[in-house]
């Protein structure tokens, strides 16, 4: 073992010890906390308070209300973090107009056994359906855009593992650019939703429901009989597309065989 490793190990241990002691001494509030923090209580009491709509977010799901309404701009920028991370990946793997998939002759033999393939064929649409339901119910039940998007990407990941990436590109006819487009559409939707109050003539970015102290009108709480919690439903839907397509894009990129990537880099 090198001295450097020992130093890093000891430093980490000291850091963890200090943090642990600080927590025991009440640095993060007394543990166990007997009451909910007042700010959390405020969110819980107000996110779907039908009797006092001054502070409400029209969403029975408190977490979604916090994510897309009370602290909405954080989520907007967190989406940007994920977006930029994927873009960094795309920039690293940029391949100028060269078709991937030259070894097409052996494509039939790619992938796992017929049992796995069949199971994946069955599971694939089911995973997509579940992920969509999580997204569509994000403002009502636990879930939301990021979770459902990750689930959707898992469906594509299983397909990549079971069939190889060429299956997605050629049988499903979904290329890297398709996912990029899908993702951009989701992202731009989020940005436009956030800008909507500005377009309505106020300065409140990302405002959802009307406030007594703000002249901006509310997002409609429901679309016909469909409760949308103002803008939260749309945000979740757009985030679902964004995250799902973003992750799938990354999976597609990292499943380019290294040899092939090197060959293209050398061209």
């Amino acid at each position: 073992m090198k001295t450097k490793d020992v130093v890093i190990g000891i430093t980490t241990a000291i850091l963890l010890l200090v943090i642990a002691i600080a927590i025991i001494l009440g640095g993060t509030g007394w543990t166990p906390l007997t009451e909910i923090r007042l700010l959390a209580k405020f969110y819980l009491e107000n996110c779907f308070n039908l009797f006092d709509k001054n502070y409400w977010a029209a969403s029975p799901e408190a977490v979604s209300a916090m994510l897309w309404d009370y602290r909405g701009i954080d989520t907007y920028y967190e989406t940007a973090v994920f977006f930029l991370a994927v873009i960094s990946g795309v920039a690293l793997f940029r391949i100028a107009e060269v078709k991937v998939g030259a070894i097409s002759s052996m494509r039939r033999e790619l992938g796992l056994s017929i049992i796995v393939k069949t199971v994946t064929r069955i599971a694939f649409p089911l995973i997509i359906t579940v992920s969509a339901s999580v997204a569509l119910h994000g403002h009502l039940t636990p879930g939301g855009g990021f979770q459902s998007g990750s689930m959707m990407a898992v469906a594509f990941l299983t397909a990549i593992a079971a069939f190889s990436r060429y299956f997605i590109e050629e049988n499903l006819k979904l290329t890297k650019d398709n996912f990029l487009t899908l993702r951009s559409v989701g992202l731009i939707t989020i940005a436009i939703l956030a800008l909507a109050p500005i377009l309505a003539g106020s300065i409140a970015l990302m405002q959802n429901q009307a406030k007594p102290w703000s002249s901006t009108p509310s997002f409609p709480e429901a679309l016909g009989i469909l409760w949308t919690a103002g803008s939260i439903f749309y945000y979740n839907l757009a985030e679902f597309l964004t995250v799902g397509a973003g992750f799938t894009l990354l999976f597609l990129l990292i499943s380019i065989p290294e040899e092939e990537f090197r060959r293209i880099l050398r061209l």
Binding site: Y77, A80, R183
Partner: peptide, 9 residues
């Protein structure tokens, strides 16, 4: 960030 979202498209 809006512009960054739009640029890939």
């Amino acid at each position: 960030i809006f512009a960054a979202f739009a640029l890939p498209l």
